[in-house]
C-alpha cells in the first residue's frame, strides 16, 4: 500500500531495503523512499481527529478505516462514527498508481440512502473541517514536486534530513513544504507548509510512532495552523496489518451496510 492512511498523512516514511550512501542522497531520493515505504498489503485502524480552536474548544470526529493495495489501485473505505449527525456516512476512494490518473471517490449519505460519485479534484478542501486537506492525507507522488535536500538537523534525539519540496503545479495551495525526515528510520518527524504568499501556514508534528508488524506506523500527529491559531490532533489506534481484507469490503454494498 502506498499510503499510510490518513495517517500517512504525514508523509512519512519507510525503511528502504535499498541502501544509499548518505552523501549521495538527493531530496528526491529521500521523498521517494518515503513514498515507496512498504506498509503491508492492507491495514485497518480507528482514527480520532480532535479539532481544537483558538479558545481551546474541542470537536471530535471518529472514523473506522480499511485500506488495501490491489497493485495498480489502492482502495480505501472510511466509516464515520462521530459526531452523531454524520454516523453511518461512508467514504470510498480508489487511488491509482497510473501517473496523472484522478482518484475515484464516492460518498454514502444515510439520510439520502444514496451513494454519490464526487469529484476528486478538490484536494485543497479541508477534510471534515480539520486542518488536514485531502491532499495532506493522501498520496502525493514525488514527481509532482521538485525536491532539494537543504541540510541535516537534529530534532530531539533524531538526526533528520531537511528536504524542501516545491510544487510543479503553478496554482497549488502551498508554495513549498519543508519536511524533516529521520535518518535510518525514514520517518517524517515534522513538516512545514507555506501558503501561496510564501508565509508559514501550518506545521505538522509527529508525536508518536512505533513499529507494528514490522511496519513503521505514525500514531499521534498534530497539524497546527499558525495563521489562524487552531489545530487538529490525529490519533490512530487498533492498527492491524495484513489481515487479508476481502475485496468485497470496498464496494457499494459495504458503504451502505456500514459497520
Amino acid at each position: 500500500m502506498k499510503r499510510l492512511i490518513i495517517s500517512t498523512v504525514i508523509a512519512l516514511l519507510a525503511i528502504s531495503t535499498v541502501s544509499f550512501a548518505k552523501k549521495d542522497l538527493t531530496g528526491l531520493d529521500i521523498i521517494t523512499k518515503v513514498y515507496n515505504r512498504d506498509d503491508g498489503n492492507d491495514q485497518t485502524g480507528d482514527l480520532t481527529m480532535t479539532l481544537v480552536n483558538k479558545f481551546g474548544d474541542q470537536r471530535v470526529r471518529k472514523i473506522k478505516q480499511y485500506i488495501r493495495d490491489f497493485g495498480d489501485v489502492e482502495k480505501k473505505i472510511m466509516f464515520f462514527l462521530e459526531p452523531a449527525d454524520v454516523r453511518n456516512t461512508s467514504f470510498m476512494n480508489w487511488s491509482y498508481t497510473e501517473a496523472g490518473r484522478d482518484d475515484d471517490q464516492w460518498i454514502y449519505l444515510p439520510a439520502l440512502k444514496k451513494v454519490k460519485r464526487i469529484s476528486s479534484d478538490s484536494k485543497s478542501d479541508y477534510f471534515m473541517g480539520s486542518d488536514f486537506t485531502y491532499d495532506d492525507l493522501g498520496d502525493r507522488h514525488p514527481t509532482e514536486d521538485t525536491h532539494k535536500l537543504l541540510r541535516t538537523e537534529k530534532i530531539g534525539d533524531e538526526e533528520c534530513y531537511v528536504v524542501e519540496s516545491i510544487p510543479k503545479e503553478a496554482d497549488y495551495m502551498y508554495s513549498r513544504t519543508v519536511t524533516w525526515v529521520i535518518k535510518d528510520k525514514w520517518i517524517g518527524l515534522k513538516k512545514e507548509f507555506y501558503d501561496e504568499d510564501g508565509d508559514l501556514l501550518k506545521i505538522l508534528t509527529i508525536n508518536k510512532y512505533e513499529k507494528i508488524n514490522n511496519y513503521w506506523t505514525i500514531l499521534d500527529t498534530e497539524m497546527k495552523n499558525v495563521q489562524k491559531d487552531h489545530k487538529t490532533l490525529m490519533r490512530l489506534a487498533n492498527v492491524k496489518y495484513d489481515t487479508n481484507i476481502s475485496d468485497q469490503q470496498f464496494t457499494e454494498r459495504m458503504m451502505k451496510r456500514g459497520l
Binding site: D102, D104, K116, R117, I118, S119, S120, D121, S122
Partner: peptide, 9 residues
C-alpha cells in the same frame, strides 16, 4: 448514470 469529467460530475 453518473461519471466524472475532470472536475465535473
Amino acid at each position: 448514470f453518473s461519471t466524472t469529467l475532470g472536475a465535473w460530475v
